[in-house]
């Protein structure tokens, strides 16, 4: 969370912002990040920054794997990655591990 704030503040300051109104994060369902913990950490570390009091918006990205046999994507909710059609395990997790800062909304 401190890394997200560092990036957000750097971008906001470069743009001449007075404060950050909103942080938008993108979280994959398989990123291992617990949303509640992230929100708690945000409250703790944002206090003395431009983001004090800002809204934390979290966009969830569902997991998706590629099945080479079926040449198709399938949704995955865990790391077992078994294709629902052919039951082969997939070695290619295409989405779901995101931990990104998408955007910040600032007030000048």
């Amino acid at each position: 969370m401190s890394e997200a704030l560092r990036m957000a503040e750097a971008a906001a300051k470069s743009a001449g912002a007075r404060r950050i109104l909103k942080l938008r994060l993108r979280l994959g369902s398989l990123s291992g990040v617990v949303e509640e913990s992230l929100r708690f950490a945000f409250d703790v570390v944002s206090g003395d920054t431009l983001a004090a009091g800002a809204t934390l918006e979290i966009e969830r990205v569902p997991g998706a794997c590629w099945c080479g046999t079926c040449q198709a994507e399938f949704a995955c909710v865990d790391f077992f990655n078994e294709c629902p059609c052919c039951h082969n395990p997939s070695g290619e997790l295409r989405r779901g591990q995101e931990l990104e800062i998408a955007a910040v909304e600032i007030d000048k």
Partner: peptide, 9 residues
Amino acid sequence: QTLTLNRSL
């Protein structure tokens, strides 16, 4: 104003 970042943490 919205600043788009799209960067991995």
